[in-house]
Design a protein around this nucleic acid. Structure first.
Lengths: 239, 239
DNA sequence: CGGCTGATTGATTGTGCTCAATCAGTGTGG
DNA sequence: CCACACTGATTGAGCACAATCAATCAGCCG
């Protein structure tokens, strides 16, 4: 099931592990990673309250993370695309505080955290990389905080589309045409909106010739308009 | 200016550095920390775009972190009370992405990050502690995300009051009577509300005998009502 | 087919924002 | 010393954006 291929041969490694490490160090890192776990749509990678053992690199497909409050309502906390690392909550509690679920068929590489910690004491650049990753996660959460607490529905949806577009481009894929891995419900929940509002905004953007939307397929026709609607500070790239 | 006192003698060390380390290791840690930097109300600890060199432990007083979008509006991203660590954004960019400002007279201990990283390769429990701290920061941001994107104004304000109450209690102070270090404006901005809404909610809570409010002085009269209004998952302690 | 979920569109309502005025506290300068 | 300006907080009135309630439709699978 798990392939023997090295991170060296993975096209995602520049995103996932942009490290300058010696060959023998990379081999050590390679040796602790369990590659190519396959997941079906709807399958859980972990659930809230599960013991925290590993973090995971997304190799293909997409995942969402979410938590459920005791009154039963779900809160989607993030979407994870290929090359991104999921599961770094839960370090402090030794248990996951949220759940991670495949939005579509996906494969992930499992990185046992205790071994990663051990290796990080040997490879300073690896330690720095994971401090850096977590710091970036905090930054992204702060940007989301701004988005959800201050911006209009239009701005929030524009920002999400531009974020996904930028992440596609990073992998060398089209920045203008892509397929949304998540449902309207997930988008609404993540952005703190009602499903109906998301739907209405998509149709309005379409009438304004900003987007072409067909189900989950999206084409950005007028990036400038989206950038105008969305606050630039959310994006990793200039508009 | 900076005192020679060790972390050992600091009453906040159980919150700030709950570590089981050998005496010589603690001494190493002690030696890299610059203690007792004094700050006046309104003074900046760092500003967005400043080079990232250090993280800081709050010793007394209180700070807020915030960022400013290019259209000039401020977003308050967090409040930091004694024993808490501020400045862990910016690791990935080598520059701070937000600013930190003293809400009142405060003192902080500076921890140079490059030395902390080096020491973390030597002291695994220290490395784990900082991974854990950042993980907790991510958790807190996710809870805030839920609060801001799904909950009513009442719930948001109740949750903030309960959070501050819990953090006071952790330091052995009163959980029911305390002084808010931040203005109504900061509360509103942080929670994604208008100042007027915060003000109105405080007066209504007072009419309902849930709170006694006098400027920044707050007394919680009916904790159950606050807990009922606020979602429990936000809190670190049972209601 | 019937039942299901997910998406869209319409009509109505409501929470919280905006605009506006007032007031208290504080510091400033004549 | 007092008038003044300025900031922070409170209260009121009206409005707008997005939620809610409701109906319809498309696609999918048992």
């Amino acid at each position: 099931m798990t392939s023997r291929v090295s991170c060296n041969d993975c096209s995602l490694s520049p995103i996932c592990l942009p490290l300058a490490v010696r060959a023998d160090e990379l081999e050590q890192l390679d040796s602790i990673i369990r590659r190519g776990r396959a997941m079906k749509r709807g399958e859980h990678l972990y659930r809230a309250a599960d013991p925290f053992d590993s973090v995971y690199a997304v190799r293909s497909g997409a995942l969402k993370t979410y938590s459920v409050s005791e009154d039963g309502e779900e809160q989607v906390t993030g979407f994870y695309l290929p090359g991104e690392i999921v599961g770094m909550d839960g370090i402090s509690t030794a248990h996951h505080v949220s759940s991670a679920k495949a939005l579509e068929t996906a494969t992930v590489c499992e990185i046992p955290f205790d071994r990663l910690e051990f290796l990080s004491t040997r490879i300073p650049s690896l330690q720095h990389h994971f401090f850096s990753l977590m710091s970036r996660e905090i930054q992204a959460d702060r940007e989301l905080h701004l988005l959800v607490s201050k911006k209009s529905a239009d701005d929030r949806i524009a920002a999400l589309l531009l974020s996904i577009s930028a992440r596609h481009k990073l992998r060398g894929l089209s920045a203008s045409t892509f397929r949304l891995p998540m449902s309207r419900y997930d988008i609404a929940n993540y952005l703190g909106l009602a499903v109906e509002t998301v739907s209405r905004t998509f149709t309005r953007f379409q009438q304004q010739h900003i987007l072409r939307v067909e189900g989950r397929e999206v084409e950005i026709l007028n990036r400038g308009a989206l950038c105008g609607a969305a606050p630039q500070e959310i994006l990793d790239q200039p508009c």
